[in-house]
């Protein structure tokens, strides 16, 4: 498969607002992305606009405030997907095609039951939640993420374990919680923890380095198979060095820290 043959579905509804940069991210690694409205997958449009999820190789859920997030973040988008194309989505994931959810996209993946996916590829009910930040505020700030994945996640295959990346956060609900008291242990056992927030010394993150109070500093997780990644911080906002918040203080590479996420998944597909 050539990079240009990798078709990426950047899925959106009203209120999705990070689709342009998500599109750009896949473009920069040579893929063939397309911004697709959910109605195009569910057939509520004229024939020329209809699309089939099966025709895509990667599915990406960008950030934003889908449908306004006036109920739980991501819940409305997830409910619409589940009711219209739930089985196709399950099939997409079961065939181990990559699925990425960033910020609101992560919230949608959790609402859809695709993450954490501990007991089933796609659970009927959400088994975790991205809860209101400890600060009770929207937080737009740079965050440092350490790759803690031992090799399962296909979106970090090109990131050495333990490497710290600067990937910015911007959300009001990013604290990953579950009713399961062994939640973090189980994620750890399955190698599902991908990114953790770290402090400037590379160690445990206090606020604001952990911007939401997420237990165990978890910023992003994958499913047990490693093909679905959800993360709160935005790799698509740091594709070049020059959107890093502190690049004027010096840098080694003109590549932004976020691009490697997209390079990694492409490497796995090609």
């Amino acid at each position: 498969m050539k990079a240009g043959d990798v078709k990426v579905c950047v899925l959106r509804i009203e209120g999705t607002n990070c689709e342009d940069e998500m599109y750009q991210a896949f473009k920069m690694v040579g893929a063939d992305p397309e911004k697709v409205h959910l109605k195009q997958l569910t057939g509520q449009v004229s024939d020329s606009l209809k699309r089939d999820i099966e025709d895509y190789d990667i599915l990406a859920f960008p950030g934003g405030f889908s449908a306004g997030d006036y109920v739980r973040a991501g819940a409305i988008f997830a409910a619409r997907i589940r009711s219209a194309i739930g089985p196709q989505i399950r099939k997409f994931v079961e065939s181990e095609k990559p699925v990425l959810g960033v910020c609101n996209g992560f919230q949608i993946l959790v609402e859809l039951g695709l993450l954490p996916g501990l007991d089933d590829v796609m659970s009927n009910e959400p088994t975790a939640a991205l809860y209101t930040n400890d600060s009770a505020r929207f937080e737009c700030r740079p965050t440092l993420l350490r790759n803690d994945n031992r090799g399962k996640c296909i979106f970090t295959s090109e990131v050495p374990k333990g490497k710290v990346l600067m990937i910015p956060s911007a959300h009001a609900e990013g604290k990953l919680l579950s009713m399961d008291p062994k939640f973090v242990d189980r994620l750890e056992e399955n190698d599902q923890i991908v990114f953790r927030y770290v402090g400037e010394d590379g160690k445990d993150a206090q606020y604001p380095w952990n911007p939401n109070g997420s237990p165990s500093d978890i910023a992003g997780i994958c499913n047990p198979a490693g093909n679905v990644l959800g993360m709160m911080p935005h790799p698509e906002r740091v594709l070049t060095r020059f959107t890093h918040p502190d690049w004027t203080r010096g840098y080694e590479s003109e590549e932004g820290d976020g691009l490697v996420v997209f390079r990694s998944v492409m490497k796995k597909l090609l």
Binding site: R137, F138, C140, R141, A170, R237, F242, P245
Partner: peptide, 25 residues
């Protein structure tokens, strides 16, 4: 106020409203 506003969405913000060392801007 500044950090309650998303000043980076669209991924084109090169010089941010607050500058300097991370979390000491």
């Amino acid at each position: 106020a500044i950090r309650q506003y998303d000043h980076e969405v669209r991924a084109s913000t090169v010089i941010h409203p607050m500058v300097g060392k991370m979390n000491r801007t």
